[in-house]
Design a binder for these strands. Structure first.
Lengths: 231, 231
DNA sequence: AACGCGATTTTTGTATACGATTAGATTTAT
DNA sequence: ATAAATCTAATCGTATACAAAAATCGCGTT
């Protein structure tokens, strides 16, 4: 399941840059709002600004990076509204995905899901938060891969990345139960063929993550600033 | 509801190129498979290849243009599989959209929907197929705008564009009932507040369009070519 | 010491140049 | 005459150069 644009084996240079940045964002090594200077990135990956720009524009279209005209690219900071919309879309799409995943269940997939859960548990057990947060997203993508629906898969990949940023910005408590146990339950329902239960569990799982966030409207800072200082 | 990337009033040059190409594709003036040479487009819009490339890459990410390495950009030709996935995704997303649209109904929106239907009927009446096909898609986008969900809106915009290409490639009969009457029924259900009926009508409408297409697997041309010539 | 203004430096936007790849035409050999 | 091979023209991939905008710093004023 290559993430490169062109499906030939050649991992073109812009995909290398894109994937490097994406991984750093997904693992929370690059935080929302971080400036992504073209020259700076170019030096790191030994590429010209032309290629860096292409990579940044791809990420911008995926909603993971924001480009401000004449100011440059930054790691995106989804607004509370965008966050809510992302979760709503995920419930909708992942609901459809699990139904398809149940239909596609097999021994092979059971093994892959098990391996995934093991990897997640391992990362959490040894306190590797960066791997844990990344693997947590990868579970959802694995289910999407099962569903054998290219469009749903690519949509979800973007949504998962945005969710990662959202959690970082809005979570209430420092630690976040990445939900390996939830993932376990969902997996059980899928492999046992219980589509209704699997769907319900998946949606509950997503809603629970959303509930752990504080998405109250901090109405666009600047506008409220006057009110706050007046009150 | 600007379609430009940067939401400031300045319609940057790459958006102009992008929108020009998109409109031509949506109105079926550019057909699937058409080569989109960088220099050629650059001369038309009086822009350098740098800007043209940016526009083409945007359209590629939206699935409306396909870029083949070292060969250039072409108007996309969705495969039957991609076509089916597009329709499935539209049913899912537009189902959610109409429910939200019903919740948002008002006199103002009733008027805008009416105007839209009038414009569609007009275009069909005077035989302006290009406008008709474009307006037909715009109806769905208007409902999405009602739903007040930025993410759903932008997803649907891509799906509608892909649908336009799909219809052109796979429709059975030359003429296609663009479905102003369907749109009328959906509108009635929305303004009357009948969410269940509106959703059912919308999904039926989409399934009917899909049913008018011939999406049988014509197995990837090249692979079958050998078989055909041997037989 | 704080603020505002202007020069300098950095960074982005766009065009263009050059090497690499592909497609098409012409030639050559079977 | 057909098919393979080679050459040529057109097109893409990438780097770089230059212009324009923004950010930074330093200076002088209050």
């Amino acid at each position: 399941m290559a993430t490169d644009t062109s499906s030939n084996g050649a991992p073109d240079r812009v995909s290398r840059i894109r994937n490097g940045l994406l991984l750093a964002i997904l693992e929370h090594r690059l935080l929302p709002g971080t400036k992504l200077g073209e020259d700076e990135i170019g030096q790191i990956y030994d590429a010209s600004r032309t290629l860096v720009r292409a990579a940044l524009q791809q990420l911008a279209h995926e909603g993971i990076v924001e480009i401000e005209k004449n100011r440059g690219a930054f790691v995106a900071s989804p607004s509370p509204r965008e966050a809510r919309e992302t979760f709503e879309a995920r419930c909708l799409i992942e609901g459809a995905i699990v139904e398809r995943a149940v239909a596609a269940r097999s021994e092979t997939w059971r093994t892959r899901l098990d391996d995934q859960l093991t990897a997640e548990a391992d990362a959490e057990a040894r306190g590797d938060h960066r791997a844990a947060i990344r693997l947590s997203g990868e579970f959802h993508l694995l289910v999407a891969e099962m569903a054998d629906h290219e469009l749903y898969y690519s949509l979800l990949r973007e949504l998962v990345a945005r969710t990662s940023l959202t959690i970082l910005l809005y979570r209430r408590h420092r630690v976040h139960f990445c939900g390996v146990d939830h993932h376990r339950l969902i997996t059980d329902a899928i492999v046992s063929g219980d589509a209704v239960r699997a769907k319900a569990l998946m949606i509950d799982h997503l809603k629970e993550i959303e509930a752990e966030l504080d998405l109250s409207e901090t109405e666009e800072n600047s506008a409220s600033l006057a009110d706050i200082l007046q009150g």
